[in-house]
């Protein structure tokens, strides 16, 4: 197996008395989709926020290429090659779709000397934005204002922005939420394609998508890792079956 590109060790986050994420250790490899599932409030989004630097961890380590990045700010972590999408759509609503992606692509280039030249004249950045929109299936919407997109398209844009920053690690927080079946199918295909060159952590509720994509599966309950391993291992784990009320339908489809 390849060396993990991103690995957490004993990662913990407390909000006052509440332990939202407790002693979580997991790792992400290029070429793998690591899916994290669990009921609402299990701490999945908090975990994403800890990895992306949106929240500081209470204790534990986040190792990226062997370097501890816990405590770095989200922009620093982003520049080190960790891209994330948000559960709640988090885009620039008044800007065009293209400008959303272009801004994302622009973040990868040093900007100090670009105060006087027009933003659109940098072909490399435009190209990056264009490719990202193409991959996410939004190229035909490039000139639309983001606020006028459908919900599903806004989710696609979310992914496109993430891709335009050319990350090595992708943290995708429920990318399928609120998408129609057709759009979902597209997104699953896209994530499958991205797997080859990225290490992906996917948080998802849609079990079809989970089992279509997962190379590795982690089940979280109450902030703790209940079980982790290959999808088959997790599926047959008694602990998971016991913990998941109504879990049979989830896991034995």
């Amino acid at each position: 197996m390849t060396e993990a590109i991103l690995r957490t060790e004993g990662l913990t986050k407390r909000f006052g008395g509440l332990v939202a994420v407790s002693d979580v250790s997991l790792d992400l490899h290029v070429g793998e989709v690591h899916v994290v599932i669990g009921p609402n409030g299990a701490g999945k989004s908090t975990l994403t926020n800890l990895l992306s630097g949106d929240l500081p961890a209470t204790s534990g380590r986040v190792m990226l290429d062997g370097r501890d990045i816990a405590g770095l700010s989200s922009d620093q972590i982003s520049r080190m090659g960790v891209g994330r999408s948000y559960q709640k759509t988090n885009i620039f609503l008044p800007f065009t779709v293209f400008e959303n992606a272009r801004l994302a692509a622009q973040s990868r280039t040093p900007n100090a000397l670009r105060v006087f030249s027009r933003a659109e004249q940098y072909e490399a950045i435009n190209a990056l934005a264009g490719v990202a929109l193409e991959s996410a299936g939004l190229a035909h919407r490039a000139q639309r204002v983001a606020a006028t997109l459908s919900h599903g398209e806004q989710r696609q844009l979310e992914i496109a922005m993430c891709l335009a920053t050319q990350p090595r690690v992708l943290l995708l927080d429920e990318p399928l939420a609120g998408m129609g079946p057709h759009e979902s199918q597209r997104m699953v295909e896209l994530i499958g394609k991205l797997r080859a060159e990225h290490a992906i952590m996917l948080i998802e509720h849609d079990m079809d998508a989970v089992f279509a994509l997962a190379n590795r599966l982690t089940v979280m309950v109450n902030g703790e890792v209940l079980e982790t391993g290959s999808p088959e291992q997790v599926r047959s784990s008694p602990a998971v079956q016991a913990a998941y009320l109504g879990g049979e339908e989830l896991l034995h489809e």
């Binding site: 994330r84 800007f95 801004l103 622009q106 990868r108 280039t109 900007n111 105060v115 027009r118 920053t165």
Partner: peptide
């Protein structure tokens, strides 16, 4: 001129959604 540049676009991005700009890697 400045507002039409990459720098200016980044400022406008910060106005609209500062959090997202940070997540995209901009030193806001």
């Amino acid at each position: 001129r400045i507002l039409g540049s990459s720098f200016g676009r980044a400022l406008m991005g910060i106005k609209v959604n500062e959090h997202r700009m940070r997540a995209l890697g901009f030193p806001v």
